[in-house]
Design a protein around this nucleic acid. Structure first.
Length: 302
DNA sequence: CACCCAAGTCGTATGTAGAG
DNA sequence: CTCTACATACGACTTGGGTG
């Protein structure tokens, strides 16, 4: 296992390569896209214990077979199968162990594609699909090539591939009539949560409380919190915090607003609170984050 | 103006049980 | 299915002092 950066500002990833796995982890502080990590598993004894995380994960079986489970639902998968887990879902999996196994995996979020996010959250438990066009394999190879070669404008290229990939994958998962029927049955409670999501996307600020949101949607606090977690996969409070963080990062990178002004706009009670919040979640103070981001952007332009 | 630190307090989110 | 009530853990915030 080595640890080498691709060495280009703006699109930096840590590469870990062995004879069993190739993996790139994006340096999230500097990267402005939707990709968290990407890689290929290359051994038939692959096995991952039950775990969950706060991002989506896509996997594609390029050869061999195996199984995986999500929150108790079990799936057998083989060459050509694509499967997806949502944030917060406990999942695990393994190769069957008898034939050569190759698995593409990709962790992602919707930092800049919130329109797609709704549709991904709406996907039901029908999570294993035949990927006839090898969408993830082809996109994955291109992305890893960009990360490896670190060519100019790699950031934009990877972002473009990601957009194409996420839309294509969504189409694969949405072309299932049974899923639509199940969706019908779930429509009422889920649409409530989508209204909440809608509201949170329209009103990004830190002063949201679960109580307040619950009141707005005529639900009890506990009921809202529980249903949100059940449907969306992550706690409501955490979702609000992530949105604030994304918005703050965006404003720090893309505008000249002062840190105080951004904190104020996001309705933090004070500049101290904003600064602490930001540092707690990113490891950098707002000012330091802006400095690093700008430096990386300028570096990429050279 | 922006940041750091430490300590203490307070409020919020979450989980669970049970009721209508 | 939706709600209330309650306990608990932990994160958020304040405060005050200091630095660059």
């Amino acid at each position: 296992m080595g640890g080498t950066g691709s060495g280009k500002a703006g699109l930096r990833a840590v590469c870990r390569e062995s004879d069993r796995e190739l993996r790139y982890d994006m340096e999230s502080m500097l990267w402005r896209g939707n990709l968290n990590y990407i890689g290929i598993v290359l051994h038939e004894s692959w096995c991952v214990e039950s775990h969950s995380h706060d991002h989506f994960e896509l996997c594609y079986v390029a050869s061999g077979s195996g199984w995986f489970s999500i929150d108790g639902s079990f799936f057998r998968v083989s060459k050509g199968d694509l499967f997806l887990t949502k944030p917060g879902e406990r999942h695990q999996g393994a190769a069957s162990g008898d034939t050569a196994f190759q698995l593409y995996f990709l962790g992602f979020n919707f930092d800049q594609l919130s329109g797609l996010e709704y549709d991904y959250y709406r996907l039901d438990m029908n999570r294993a699909k035949k990927d006839e066009h090898q969408i993830l394999k082809q996109a994955g190879d291109r992305i890893m090539q960009e990360l490896r070669n670190a060519r100019p404008r790699g950031e934009e290229m990877v972002h473009g591939i990601m957009v194409q990939l996420l839309v294509s994958v969504l189409r694969v998962f949405q072309t299932d009539q049974h899923a639509e029927e199940v969706e019908e049955q779930r429509e009422r409670p889920l649409s409530n949560m989508l209204d909440v999501l809608d509201y949170l996307h329209a009103e990004v600020h830190a002063s949201h409380t679960i109580e307040g949101i619950a009141e707005k949607f005529h639900l009890s606090r506990t009921h809202l919190a529980r249903e949100f977690k059940r449907h969306i996969g992550i706690p409501l409070g955490e979702y609000v915090r992530n949105q604030c963080l994304d918005k703050a990062k965006h404003d720090l990178k893309e505008t000249n607003e002062t840190v105080s002004s951004i904190g104020e706009k996001l309705r933090f009670p004070s500049i101290h609170a904003f600064s602490l919040f930001f540092k707690r979640h990113t490891g950098l103070s707002p000012q330091a984050f802006r400095t690093v981001s700008l430096a990386s952007q300028h570096g990429a332009k050279r």
